[in-house]
C-alpha cells in the first residue's frame, strides 16, 4: 500500500499518521472506507503492531478515522478536522514562500496587492 522510510529520523508512528492523512486528504481512502487491519499492515510493512495501533489511535483522536468494535477502522466522513489540517499545512508552505520572496527583494506591498488582486478575481468568478 505504501512504503515507510525506516532510515528516516522521524518516528515510524508519525510517518504512519502522516501517510494515512495524506491518503485520506487526497481521497485515495474514501469516506467510510475500511482501513487495513493492524495485523495486516504489521505483516505487510514488517512493523510492530503496537506502533500501528498507536498511529490509528492518534488518527482517531484527530478525527480522521473512527473505529467500530470488532470490525476495524474506517475513514471519518466528518471533514472539518481534515480542512483544518490542510489550512495549517498550507499556511506553513506560504510562510516559507513569502519569506523567500521577501529575501529576494519583492516589496511586501507588492505581495499584498497580488493577494488582493487574486482575491478580487476569485470573487468575480
Amino acid at each position: 500500500m505504501f512504503e515507510l522510510d525506516m532510515r528516516s529520523r522521524k518516528p515510524i508512528y508519525e510517518q504512519l499518521v502522516d501517510k494515512m492523512k495524506e491518503l485520506i486528504m487526497n481521497e485515495l481512502l474514501k469516506t467510510d472506507e475500511q482501513l487495513p487491519s493492524v495485523r495486516q499492515l504489521a505483516t505487510e510493512l514488517s512493523i510492530n503492531p503496537n506502533t500501528i495501533q498507536k498511529a490509528y489511535r492518534e488518527l482517531e483522536t484527530q478525527g480522521f478515522i473512527y473505529s467500530v468494535k470488532g470490525k476495524g477502522s474506517f475513514v471519518n466522513p466528518n471533514q472539518k478536522a481534515i480542512d483544518k489540517e490542510k489550512i495549517v499545512e498550507m499556511k506553513k508552505e506560504l510562510e516559507k514562500l513569502i519569506l523567500e520572496a521577501l529575501y529576494l527583494g519583492i516589496p511586501a506591498q507588492e505581495l499584498i496587492s497580488l493577494i488582493q488582486d487574486l482575491d478580487a478575481s476569485k470573487g468575480g468568478a
Binding site: R39, A42, T43, S46, P49, N50
Partner: peptide
C-alpha cells in the same frame, strides 16, 4: 533478517 523480523511480527500481531 527481514524474513525473521516479519515472522516475529506476525506472531506478535496474531
Amino acid at each position: 533478517r527481514k524474513k525473521v523480523k516479519n515472522l516475529l511480527i506476525q506472531d506478535v500481531a496474531e
